[in-house]
Structure formats: C-alpha cells, structure tokens
Amino acid sequence: MQQQDKIFVAGHRGMVGSAIVRRLQDDGFNNIVTRSSKDLDLRDQQQVSKFFAEEKPDYVFLAAAKVGGIIANNTYRAQFIYENMMIQNNVIHHAYVNNVKKLMFLGSSCIYPKMAPQPLKEDYLLTGLLEPTNEPYAIAKIAGIKMCDAYRAQYGCNYISVMPTNLYGPNDNYDLNNSHVLPALLRKFHEAKINNIPEVVVWGTGTPLREFLHADDMADACFYLMQHYNEEGLVNIGVGKDISIKDLALMIKDIVEYEGQLVFDATKPDGTPRKLMDVGKLHGLGWDAKIELKEGINEVYKQLKTSLWKQKI
C-alpha cells in the first residue's frame, strides 16, 4: 500500500475497524474512505454496487460484521448468518467487479471445530463439528474465507483472510446481554464497585480458557499482513497464550479494585472449553503481539472511567 492509495475500511465505527483506521493514520495514510451503516447498508447489494462504482477504492479492510457474545449468537441465529453472509458477499464481489487491488477479510477464532486440538492451527478448519451456540456466525465466516479463496482461484484476486482471537480495546461493546466476556466483566465489576453491590455474578463455571488480544495489536497485525502476506487460506492473529475465565475475572476484579465476592452461574453456557490460537504462521511472517493483557485492560479501564461511564452506559 502507498500513502496516496484509497483505502475503504468497512466497519470503521466498531472496535476492529476503528483500530485499523487509527493504525493507518499513524503511518500517514489519510485517503481513507468510511461509511456509517446509515449511509451505506452493506447488506444491500445495490447500495454496495453503487458505492464501489463511485469510490473505486484500491484496498479494502472488511471489518464490518454483526457480532456478539454467546447469548447474542445463540438468540439471533438467523440474523447472525444472514447479515454476515450478505455483508461479505456484497463487499467481496463488488471489490472484484471494481478491480480492488487487495482485500482483507476479518473473521474470528470461532470458525474452528469445538473439540479441535489446541492450540488451533489454520489447517484445523473444517475438520470437525462447530460450537453449537455460535454455529451460524462461524459458518458465515467460513464462507467468507472460502469466498476469498474462490475469487483468488477463479479471478486471480489478491484477497486474504485473517482470524483474530478474542479482542478487547477502545470502542468495545459493553452491553451486558450482547457483549463479549471481557468488556462485560469490566462493566459488571465497575458498576458493582460504584454501587456497593456485594457480589458479581460471572456467567458459566469459570473453567473455559480464552485468549485475548488488544485491538491495537490486532490492527498492527492487519496493517503488517496487508503489506507482507499474499496467499490463500487464512492467518491466525493472537498472542499464543490463554487464561481461564475465573483468572480473568480475578484480574479485572483487581484492576477495578472491587472488594466484593465472585459468584459463578453454572446455568449459563460455557461455550468452547478452550480456544487458543496457534500463531506460529504469524510469527513466521515476522509479526508478534506487544501489549500484555493486564497492561491492556488497565489502559482500557482508565479510558472508560473518563469517558463511557461518565455517560452512565
């Protein structure tokens, strides 16, 4: 990519897309095209066709998606598969029609089989059954990977796919019903502290193991791969280390300085027992994560205390 190139970041208001925009701007890329969902509905083929025909971007980061935690994935199953399929089908196809030089499709670690060996290697894709609670979302993302590969094979398109692990950072979703585990815990502990609530309830048993990557690290990896990776298939983006939900909750409890009790609600689903990414391919390409988990959560919490929670989210 050259600094004068026109770059479309789809999903720029979300945690992932906004981090990619910041990373591009940090390196002097200012010809960045963005659209809010009100201005451009990526589910609408006609709108997407018109946008690409008018704007003619050189590069595309496809970070737009309908996302959520376990409950949201399991509740809105039809929406998760339909909306994600429509978004990626429209963007990938019209990138091809309008001769986009390169496109990056961002997926999720939930694409891997529920009981796949750990850590998760890229070639474990489609080797077993998916986690039932997020199967529709995972199938949509798998279709996106295969679509990129198919357009590469048939049309010679330089489309690449990356699969980030669980992310956290600025512009995360803090809705207690639809958010992922880390932001949900941050909000729960913060609100329990300021309201003197004696206990915080954590969904599940606390035993599942999860890996967490700061959104700024993720964006840096995407920026790096957009310039150094040009192959079919996918690349995992992660830190290569995981932590139990219980230990994560204890870490956040310590960061927030909450002094109440921790209670685990085993009636809520745990999801996949473990989901650790094998990042050997990423390291081999020359990139490694920099932000340690506790350091990253500390910074996120400082930002939240001075912004979002002043607005009483």
Rank of each mutant, 00 (worst) to 15 (best):
F189N: 13
Y159I: 00
G204Q: 00
A140S: 15
Y124I: 07
H190G: 00
V202S: 00
K114M: 15
D217G: 01
T133I: 10
N195G: 01
A153C: 02
Y137W: 12
K188H: 10
N134L: 02
M163T: 03
L176F: 05
L209Y: 12
S108W: 03
V200I: 08
L186V: 11
K188R: 14
N196H: 15
Y137F: 15
I194S: 08
K102S: 06
A143F: 10
I111E: 08
I197T: 09
D175H: 15
Y159F: 15
L185N: 11
A215K: 09
I139Q: 10
V201I: 13
L106A: 05
D149R: 13
T165M: 02
L126D: 15
T165L: 00
K146H: 09
N195S: 09
A184W: 12
H190T: 06
L129F: 07
M104T: 04
Y112Q: 00
L130Q: 13
H180P: 01
D149W: 14
D172E: 11
E191P: 00
E131H: 04
L126H: 12
A150H: 14
A140G: 12
Q154A: 12
S108C: 06
Q154P: 00
I194L: 11
N195T: 11
M147C: 12
E135D: 06
P132Q: 12
I160S: 04
E135G: 04
P136M: 01
T127Q: 14
L129V: 00
L129D: 12
F212C: 07
G156S: 07
D149N: 15
W203I: 13
V200A: 07
W203L: 14
N166W: 06
F105K: 02
L103F: 06
P136V: 05
L185G: 10
N178T: 14
L209C: 08
F212E: 09
N173D: 14
N166I: 03
P164H: 01
P117N: 13
F105S: 05
L182V: 08
E122G: 07
L103I: 11
D216P: 00
A143R: 05
A143T: 04
K102V: 00
F105V: 03
W203E: 15
Y174L: 15
P208W: 09
F189T: 11
Y159S: 03
L106M: 08
F189Q: 10
I111S: 06
T165D: 03
E211D: 03
I111R: 03
E135H: 11
T205P: 01
L213R: 01
N173A: 02
I139E: 12
